Each structure stands twice: as structure tokens, then as C-alpha cells.
Amino acid sequence: MYKLIACDLDETLLNSENKVSSKNIEAIQKADAQGVKFVLATGRGYATVQGTLEEIGLQNKKDEYVISFNGGAVTENKDNHLLHFQGISFDLASELYKRGQDYDVAIHVYTQEDVYVYNLVEEERKHLETKMEVIEISDKNIDFLKDQAIAKVLYMNTDRDYLNQIEEDLKDITQNSDITYSSNRYIEFNDKGVNKGAGITFLADHLELDISQTIAIGDNFNDLPMLETAGLAIGVQNMVPELKEKMDYVTEANHNESAIAEVIEKFILNGEE
């Protein structure tokens, strides 16, 4: 029997208005009543997902959890108690920030609590306005963050080929990084070994669950390590097409049609294997 569901947020749990549908909320609460933990697994920071946790009734709750920063942090929802954190070095973050200024990208720098954005173009501003609050900066370096833990850095551009080329260009400084793509607009730089698969493994171990008792739900490349690790890999209908053949199950519904409720009804409430 499955005991834990790790679920991506953007384009998976959240609809196009960045909300959780009432049908999804009802299903999550039914799963919770059966002792199944519903865990947000996101590239965002844990501080920026509190609104979603409140929507689904899990904000500030003991024995409920969030996997954030693509697996770089695992927190218990009660007081955002940090169980695990693995960020990138300041030197790497600083170099990525400086090198990023040579490209047509918006640069995000994630600390444990805040997101700083350089070159916040209007397209990105609109994309973020209902997702999270960010701090816009114009500094040519991030020396002001030298004493803070940095979770990750990402670049934004909606041209995937352009981002692929940036990845090639930066290989001289990213040998010790885990690099992935998300939301069809970001290239993300985490520390080596940081991914959602490592996050769900840490949490399953913490809860003394066998990994076969876990379900992962996602839609994009940064979800793949989690999907490959979990006992059951589920993609939503709007998933990146290249990944669908790797899934154990692909929902009939997309993220605007309560795909998560479909999963919970099928594999938790009806008990299918």
C-alpha cells in the first residue's frame, strides 16, 4: 500500500491560475485521512509554497513535509523545521551570477528564505506574479549574500536550444553541479547529487518507509529523478512528451482537470497497484 505521494507543483498540482482545484483538495484530504502523506516536491523554496500548503490544509502541520529546491531541502511543515539542506557554494553561485550577465537570461538566486532576480524581464515578471514574491536586483555581483546559504541559481529564457547552449558553455564551472530544466523556461543549477529523487529517498528513509510505498507525480525533466526513484511513476497528461514512455501511468486529466484527484482516486482510494 502506498504511504506517500510526492507531487510537483507547477503544471502538475497547480492549474493555470496557480491554484489547487477543489477536487484535488478533496482528494488530498481523503488521502491524508487514510494516513497517506501528501508532499509537495518543488524547485521552489519551502518559504514560497506556504499559500499552496494553506490551500490543501497542510500548512504548519506536524508530521507533514515539503521537498523543495529540487531536493536541496526537506522540511517538516510545522515551523518549516529544516531536516535536510544541501546548497551550492557561494563561489559557484557568484560565478554563475557573473557569467549569466553575458546571456539573454533572467538570473534567479535562491537563498533559504528569498529569491533574488537580476534582469527581471516583463515576461518573467508576469510569469512569477501569481507564483511567488521575488526581490529584484541590479547589482553586478552578489557579495551582499556572502554570509547566506544559497540553495541554487537558475537562468530563465523560453528558448530551450539557447539554454542548452548555455549549459555547454558553462561546463568549465559546473562539473560539480546537478543541472536540470523546468517549466519550459529554466535551466537550474543545484549541487551535485541534489535532485528530487534524492529528496524523496531522504524523506522515505526519515519516515522509515520502503521506497516502493511511494508515488511520484510530475510533468517535466526536473521531476525525472523522483519519478525514476519512486515506487510508482505518474505523469500528468500535459507532461513533456519525451518523458511519457518512461511512466508507469499517465493521467487522462491534465493539470487544469484535477489530475491529482485522478491519481488519488485510482491508486489510494480504490487501491490499485
Rank of each mutant, 00 (worst) to 15 (best):
L120Y: 06
I67P: 00
I179Y: 12
I25F: 03
D114N: 11
F267W: 01
A27V: 09
E123R: 02
H206Q: 04
A27Q: 06
D143E: 13
S258A: 15
N157S: 06
S212N: 11
I234C: 08
F90A: 12
T251P: 03
Y186M: 07
G100H: 01
E257R: 14
I166C: 07
R44V: 05
D161M: 09
M226H: 11
A259G: 09
M226G: 09
H255P: 13
S182Y: 01
N24R: 02
N80G: 10
D219K: 01
Y118A: 13
E257H: 14
F85V: 13
L154W: 06
I5V: 10
L83T: 05
Q86S: 11
T201R: 14
I150L: 07
Q29R: 15
Y110W: 02
T42A: 02
D10C: 10
Y116I: 13
L232E: 14
E64R: 08
Q165S: 08
A233N: 07
N190L: 04
L227C: 02
A253V: 06
Q86I: 10
N222E: 06
A259M: 08
L120D: 10
I67W: 03
T229N: 12
I166F: 08
Y110M: 12
E133R: 11
Y186P: 09
D102C: 07
E257Y: 14
Q101W: 00
I107N: 11
E124N: 10
E273H: 09
Y162W: 08
I173W: 08
N157E: 03
N141W: 00
H108R: 00
Q237V: 00
K61T: 08
E122L: 06
S177I: 00
L203D: 12
T180R: 05
Q112K: 14
K78R: 10
K246W: 14
L232W: 04
F202W: 09
A233S: 15
M156V: 06
T180V: 07
K246L: 15
S138R: 01
A230G: 10
L203H: 12
E11L: 12
R160T: 08
K126S: 11
L9S: 07
K23G: 13
Q148L: 12
K192C: 01
Q112N: 12
E265K: 01
L13V: 08
F90I: 03
S177A: 09
A93N: 05
G35W: 05
G43R: 04
N60H: 10
D91G: 04
Y162V: 11
N18F: 03
G199D: 03
E124F: 01
A261T: 02
E188Y: 02
E133M: 06
E11N: 15
A151E: 10
S94A: 12
A151T: 03
D91N: 15
D248R: 01
Y2D: 07
I142C: 10
T12Y: 05
R160L: 09
A47I: 00
D191I: 00
I217Q: 05
P241A: 13
I150C: 02
D143C: 03
Q101L: 07
